[in-house]
């Protein structure tokens, strides 16, 4: 269904509900501020959720839930970095709860080939897709926390302090955890013969 139609429906329902029950939703942030914040954070957050979980549909759902919880929170000051860390912390907690309650091993999603409408490499005959598929499988051989750490450090460029805030670990433990995770990932990439196009 096109996104415009879903959006129009959502707006219609929200207006109807607001008019019907007289319930006011008071988020601290107004819509305009939210849009700016969303534009800055949505892509990194989605990739973080997707690469940590290996499941595009789950990433969509958790992204919505993360922003909902974020909007309901009260901030003393609207510091952009603090709010971004807070948002990632919410997302990390959702992932944690998911692994805890799903009763499936975090690796189990590896078998679900390219959910979320992305075509398989065979369908497109694309090297980039092949590599994406390989890396996705390799990432599932890491522990969820290792994937989170690596993504935040090497893609988001987060400092150890930021990583500690975002995934709820002690700052001094980040260094050794990150080292082990990176060593493991590099070994897996070399063993599987995955070499990126630029390297």
């Amino acid at each position: 269904m096109p996104e415009e139609i879903i959006l129009a429906e959502a707006q219609q329902i929200a207006r109807a509900m607001g008019a019907a029950d007289g319930v006011e939703t008071s988020f601290q942030m107004d819509e305009q501020t939210f849009r700016i914040f969303y534009d800055r954070t949505a892509r990194p957050l989605w990739s973080y959720l997707y690469r940590s979980s290996g499941d595009a549909a789950l990433a969509d759902d958790f992204m919505q839930e993360s922003y909902f919880r974020f909007l309901r929170a009260r901030f003393k000051e609207m510091d952009q970095e603090y709010m971004k860390n807070y948002l990632f912390r919410i997302a990390t907690n959702l992932l944690r709860d998911h692994w805890r309650h799903a009763k499936v091993a975090p690796q189990a999603v590896a078998g679900r080939e390219e959910d979320g409408g992305v075509p398989t490499p065979e369908e497109r005959g694309d090297d980039r897709l092949q590599m994406n598929s390989d890396v996705r499988r390799i990432l599932q051989d890491l522990k969820p926390r290792e994937r989170e750490l690596l993504w935040l450090a090497y893609v988001e460029g987060s400092s150890h302090r930021e990583i500690a805030q975002r995934i709820g670990l002690k700052e001094r433990s980040i260094r050794s955890l990150l080292f082990r995770a990176r060593h493991k990932l590099a070994a897996l990439l070399r063993r599987q013969g995955v070499v990126s196009s630029s390297g």
Binding site: E3, I6, L7, A10, Q11, A14, E31, F34, R35, Y38, D39, A42, R43, P44, W46, S47, Y50, R51, A56, D60, M63, Q64, Y67, G116, V118, R128, M131, N132, V135, R136, L150, W151, Y154, V155, L185, L189, V194, S196, S197, S198
Partner: peptide, 23 residues
């Protein structure tokens, strides 16, 4: 490798509109 995955996501996946998430 991870940054290439991020670039891949940006190119291949369309995220939800801010307005939709807000509503």
């Amino acid at each position: 490798v991870l940054n290439e995955m991020r670039a891949f996501d940006d190119a291949e996946h369309r995220i939800r509109d801010a307005g939709f998430v807000w509503w």
